[in-house]
Structure formats: C-alpha cells, structure tokens
Amino acid sequence: MTETTTSPTSPASSAFVPPSRFAVPGRIAVSEQAAAVWQTATLTEIRRETPHAATFRFAVPAWAGHLPGQHLMLRLTAEDGYVAQRHYSIASAPDDSGHIELTLDHVEDGEVSGWFHSVAEPGDEVELRGPLSGFFAWPGDRPALLIGAGSGVVPLMSMVRHHRSRGLSVPLRMLVSARSPEDLIYARELGTETTPVFTRSAPSGVPVGRMSAAHVAPLLAEQPPGGWEAYVCGSNAFAEHASRLLVAAGQPVDRIRIERFG
C-alpha cells in the first residue's frame, strides 16, 4: 500500500495529457472520470513472489489504461456490508490490455492483505477505481533512476517492464533493497539494470548492509544526457534516507519523486 507525497495533478478530460503541457516534466494529468468510477475486477491468477509477497492478476475489461508508477484504489465489501479500501501501486506494464497486476505484502493484522493471502482465489471479485495520481508516473521519455525497498519495488517494476516491453533506449537503472535474496520481490525478473542491496543476509561475497553512498554515487557519476529523473518508493524512513543519499550525490531536489508507505 502506498500513498503519494505530492499534491494531485489537475484533472483532464482524457485519460492522460502529454507531459509537455506541464511546467514540471512528467507530471501527468489523470482523468477525473476514470479516477471516480468503480469497476469490477475478477481475480484470475495468484503468483508467489516471496514467502511474504504474492502477485494477484485481475481481469478488468473496461480499464482505461495507466502509466508506470500510478496506483489505484481497491475496495472489498464483506457480506455484512463492512467496507475496506486501500491504495495499491500497479505492478503491471500498461501494455497488458484488459488486465492489471498488484503485488501485495502479507501485512501482519492487515485486513485486506490478509484476505488476499489467506482467503482469495481465482474467480473472486473486487472493486477498483483509477488510475490515480500522475506525479510518480514515468512516461518513458527521460532517463529514470529507480530506488526502492521491500514492496516499494512494485511501481518501479512497472517502469522496468514498460521499458522492456517497448524496447526503450532511454537509460534506466534500479537500486532495490531487501532483507535477503529470499525477500527480493521479482528476483526472477530482475536483469542487468538492477542492483540489489541486502540488509541482513546475502550470497557469498556480497556485502550486507544498508543502502549507502557507495551504491548511489556511482550512478549519479554516470549522468546520461539530460540527467536522471529519480523515483524513490518505500517506507517513510527509507524514502528519507534514499533522498538524502541522492541529494548528497548531486541529484537536484526538484528531480526526486517520492512515493512512501502510509
């Protein structure tokens, strides 16, 4: 579950507005109509990612499309009428027409994540509305430096998948922190664009420790033409830590976009 830390963008009459319309590059307007309409989504597949995280694939025939980095609102309604709503980042690339994927951690005592991990099965229906927020979206038109921790990798993986599916030549790099290789979400999909950082245990010969300047500074030193647009996603503490590392390495503050758990 994530919440953007920036104010919402202006509404537009269509799903997306080209970024050139805005003073801040990449700030995408979202359709007020699409964001307000609840749609029925049918769970079609569950894939285990780690011992505590799984990907849930949904068929959403009327989905308006999204950009990598956007999120949605999910609603569950119990038989007694009790309603629970959560914000979740979208994991899938935009090209997966009629389907979306969410990757959820099993949060201790989490009523929604608990239902997904313990009760949900293919054929179950939930309600969704979105996509929401354009500030954290990456249209694929500028170099992207992605930094995440734990399930903060979810919206970043949507960007990586988009980069791959479109065969984009624009530079993209990702640093992702996990407790151990077993806790690294999407480990089977990660490629040469990704550098994992392990904080508790690691394969033989790989240092263990918190993400540091030694991980961030080399990426800032290899500045691509136009510089990096940095996207940071994780807990409050991680977002603050990673942002400080970026600034110390020379990344302009106004080119750091943050989405944090809340």
Rank of each mutant, 00 (worst) to 15 (best):
V107E: 13
P131E: 04
L246N: 05
E127H: 01
A237C: 08
H117Y: 01
R200Q: 12
T40G: 05
W138G: 01
P203H: 02
P51V: 07
M73Q: 15
P139D: 05
P181K: 01
A91M: 08
H163K: 04
P94Q: 03
T5V: 15
R257L: 01
E189P: 01
L102Q: 01
R166N: 12
G140I: 02
G26K: 12
M157R: 02
E222N: 10
S13E: 14
L168H: 11
R47P: 08
I46G: 02
S13P: 12
L102H: 07
A230W: 03
A78G: 12
W63Y: 00
R86W: 06
R179I: 12
L246I: 00
L74P: 06
D124A: 11
E125C: 04
D96F: 14
Q251F: 03
A178F: 04
A237W: 04
A149R: 11
I256D: 06
P139I: 10
G226A: 11
S113E: 05
R200S: 11
A137Y: 02
E222V: 11
R244H: 10
D109W: 07
L168W: 06
L220V: 15
D95W: 12
A202S: 06
G150E: 00
L190E: 07
R179P: 09
H215I: 05
G150D: 06
M174F: 08
F136T: 01
Q70E: 04
A41S: 03
T192V: 15
A59I: 14
V253H: 07
F116D: 03
F198K: 02
T6N: 10
A84H: 14
T199H: 07
V197M: 00
L67S: 05
Q223Y: 13
H71I: 09
G209L: 10
V206E: 08
S14Y: 13
A144D: 09
H99T: 12
A34T: 12
E79D: 13
R164W: 11
V247Y: 00
M211T: 15
E259C: 07
D80Q: 08
T55W: 00
H71Q: 06
D183R: 07
V83D: 09
E193L: 09
R57V: 15
L219Q: 07
G114N: 08
S113P: 03
P196G: 03
A84V: 14
L72K: 04
M157H: 07
P68E: 02
E182L: 15
R142K: 14
N236H: 15
G123P: 07
H241K: 10
F16R: 07
A137K: 00
E125P: 10
G226Q: 05
P11R: 05
T42C: 02
A187C: 05
M159E: 08
R164F: 00
P203Y: 02
D254N: 02
G226T: 13
R27Q: 13
T199V: 02
G227Y: 04
G148Q: 09
R257P: 04
F261P: 13
L132P: 11
A213P: 13
E111G: 13
H163A: 08
A248Y: 03
L128M: 01
M159V: 04
E79M: 12
H87R: 11
D95K: 09
S13N: 15
E79P: 10
S13A: 15
S113K: 09
G150S: 11
G81W: 00
A78K: 13
W115P: 10
R200M: 11
I100E: 04
V83C: 05
S204Q: 14
A93S: 06
E182D: 15
Y82E: 15
A34Q: 13
R244T: 03
V197T: 07
